[in-house]
Design a protein around this nucleic acid. Structure first.
Lengths: 114, 114
DNA sequence: CGGATGTGCAACCTTTGGGTAGCGCATCCG
DNA sequence: CGGATGCGCTACCCAAAGGTTGCACATCCG
């Protein structure tokens, strides 16, 4: 049954979004400086505005970015909250892993032993 | 100059490796139970042994998995150490972000508030 | 009003990624 | 020895991802 954080499900969309270097760069830019538009972002990137827009759409699906319309331009700002879940997922993984490592170590010590 | 963890570079290979659900499942399986072979893993997955082998290769490039030859079979075991770097990278991002949020909040309070 | 400026959308192209099938080679074991 | 068993490698297929171009539409401002 285990009603605790046993199953910490992997945040699919977030990991997919972070897998692309340009998307990471965009996200980092938004995290450093505040909001920006697809056009302004494209200015400092080696790709077109439309390509940036697609990347922003991916980041949006992952919940890592939020769009706000301001007149004729759309301003995006970062929301890194979803990263917490992702880090938690990684942490549960590593915990299980280390748990296993310790079990092995203990077994070895018990066998040849002190 | 900032000789601290200023530039925490994003672990490309790790994020790419984690972007695929099957790869995550393989990694989780290796973290839970100990080592396994491409053949044994393929038994509990909806894909062929060759496909699993490819995934293991990706995980290996990311340093998340290590291969050990034992006779005619190759045993893989997890190494989740690279995840630490990834988590650190995420952490620096969120830190910058929260720093920015606070700056904005303070500014707002200073303008309208007490 | 009318020209900039900023987006959205759709068609299209090319590369990459996940997957399979087939074969050759090493290794184990009766 | 000789048949299983396990892997590696290559060729090949297909769908999706990243990118570009072109154009229509809304909004701002002189």
């Amino acid at each position: 049954m285990t009603r605790t954080t046993e199953g910490e499900q992997a945040p699919d969309d977030v990991l997919v979004a972070l897998a692309d270097p340009i998307r990471r760069e965009v996200l980092a830019a938004l995290a450093r400086e505040g909001g920006a538009t697809s056009t302004s972002l494209a200015a400092s990137l080696p790709i077109t505005r439309q390509a940036v827009a697609k990347h922003l759409a991916v980041l949006d699906r992952a919940g890592l970015v939020r769009a706000h319309r301001a007149g004729r331009e759309v301003r995006y700002e970062a929301d890194l909250q979803p990263l917490r879940r992702t880090m938690r997922w990684m942490d549960t993984l590593t915990t299980q892993w280390e748990h296993r490592l310790n079990a092995i170590k203990d077994l070895a010590e018990g066998a040849t032993g002190p």
